[in-house]
Design a binder for these strands. Sequence first.
DNA 1: GTCGGCAGCTTACACGTGATAGTTCCGGGT
DNA 2: ACCCGGAACTATCACGTGTAAGCTGCCGAC
Lengths: 334, 334
Amino acid sequence: MAEEKKRTTRRITSVDVAREAGLSRATVSFVLNDTPGQSIPEATRQRVLQAAERLGYTPYAPARTLRSGRSDVAVFVLPDWPQGPTMAAFVERAAQVLSRAGLTLVTHVHTGDEQGLARLWTALTPAAVFGMRPFTSGELAGMRRAGISAVLPAAEEPGSDVSTTLWARGVGRLQAEHLIGKGHTRLAYALSDEPRLAALGRGRSEGAAQACAQAGLAAPTVTTIALDTEVTARVVEGWRGDVSAVCAYNDEVALAILAGMRTLGLSAPADLAVIGADDIPGGRFAAPPLTTVAQNSGELGIRIAEALLRTLEGQAPDLNLLPGDIQIVERASA
Amino acid sequence: MAEEKKRTTRRITSVDVAREAGLSRATVSFVLNDTPGQSIPEATRQRVLQAAERLGYTPYAPARTLRSGRSDVAVFVLPDWPQGPTMAAFVERAAQVLSRAGLTLVTHVHTGDEQGLARLWTALTPAAVFGMRPFTSGELAGMRRAGISAVLPAAEEPGSDVSTTLWARGVGRLQAEHLIGKGHTRLAYALSDEPRLAALGRGRSEGAAQACAQAGLAAPTVTTIALDTEVTARVVEGWRGDVSAVCAYNDEVALAILAGMRTLGLSAPADLAVIGADDIPGGRFAAPPLTTVAQNSGELGIRIAEALLRTLEGQAPDLNLLPGDIQIVERASA
DNA sequence: GTCGGCAGCTTACACGTGATAGTTCCGGGT
DNA sequence: ACCCGGAACTATCACGTGTAAGCTGCCGAC
């Protein structure tokens, strides 16, 4: 029966607009897309625009994508570790830049299962994809098959792993350089025991080791600690008399260390200097206020987005870490 | 010339699979979709599957969506205020549930501009949309035109505003009830000066006011404070002798208050009890450790996802706040 | 007066998929 | 001898869009 077809309210298509305006569908398309090389009198143009407005016409993205072969979606694949305000600023600024180019940015948290990513670009067919870790060759092949034209970081170029390698090392390096500048000669590095943060932690501690080597110092003692006051207190006791300053993987680890020190009656930076990373809001209100490394992630988001757009046009990405992307925020703890 | 067409590597379609398998495209479709009502011998089935595997065939989402009228994408529209681990768990669990139903979840941060949302569902044509705030009637009309079948919260039902009203009030109510249970009779509520958090803050403070009214107490004094130690110190001085306990909008505000108290030589909870909200990791390491309200956001994510799926099938959403969704985490500060 | 050219349209195809309505072939019942 | 019915496929349409190609007047130029 006809009821079956009437069940779902019919979509308004350009055919409806054409009928409403008394013109052909092609003319409607020419007007709505400002197709160059067409001569359309202003009267006709207005007739189409008003008809479209009256009916509330919205072009149907799947059909448009099917026809043109290109979608207006960009997707950022985020890791499933907890994201702070740093990532929020990153995504927000990137979205602004992409939006100006007509792209809509969405994010997808990747929980680690193999086929989750495949289903993502199968369901979305984005024009561009950015990930925090380099994609495997299998993933890249799948994306190419799905017709995705711009991918960052492209696994082919080894130095392009923005977050895990380059970026993380920069953070660790800056932490260590600050402590060395304060006269410390024997450092420790405290990693989080959250397994998903292991790769990033390795990057940051390697950066600190680089800075130490450059200053002619021994590499930091690397310890993985649980976020528990009693546990950190014991670790701090182990450090006493050996190291005079500690780089924490992030501000939360740093706060845990400060809490452990507090139970021992120790205080930073006199007994042990502590520096964090990521500049979470709570760090300012610690006792003592936490010295940390802030990442200008908004700026990075803008540059990533611009690199994606450049890739879409077939140019080289050109993505580098700039001075000023990472900064020391000096408070009292180091 | 033909070069133009060869420029972009051709997409592998079901036509290619059909040719490879020596069958028609229809048969390929029947096999790959397990279309019921077809009798296909196992040999043919394997022939198709292996051909598809060999060529690395992936169905093209836009064409599939165009044909079926339904996409496999769900999108969560998130506000642009900074998101903590609470929201991460929420999205992660919801994604799991939706994934089991064949839907891919993506998130989109909405920066507030009017046409950003319109472009979102124009570019994505999601099957389902969830937002943290109720949508305006104009937005709903646009989504219906774009063919989105499930939207939560639907603006029609007034009590369905999960986050801003129901959820936020529940948090404020629990904060106040805990303090009242500790014997406090005169409370204050401290809001953040971040303008984007104003609506949520109003909801939480209203919940606290409800709890006070229920206990026969006066409503809390509501103060908006900047996240600055000196500013909070002055506000705390103003409270002295008047209120004995304060609910903070969130843990960051609470930490700022504790820092302000510290500069005055005061300590919680003896001089002023402080309770936060959201249970950020750093709260455990404050001095004193912060009592707060934890939201079981993972559970909520699951229920929201299930409600979306139910809506997709045409049933009523049935979305309520359950006991156990919000819990007091009692530490030392209150 | 005929004809090229251009403004102002329309007709028709392609994109890749899902599914309906067939078509062919073959074995078995009457 | 005939047909019925099911197994195993295939031909074809529809989805909504962008655009290349074609069509019709009308005006000015020779």
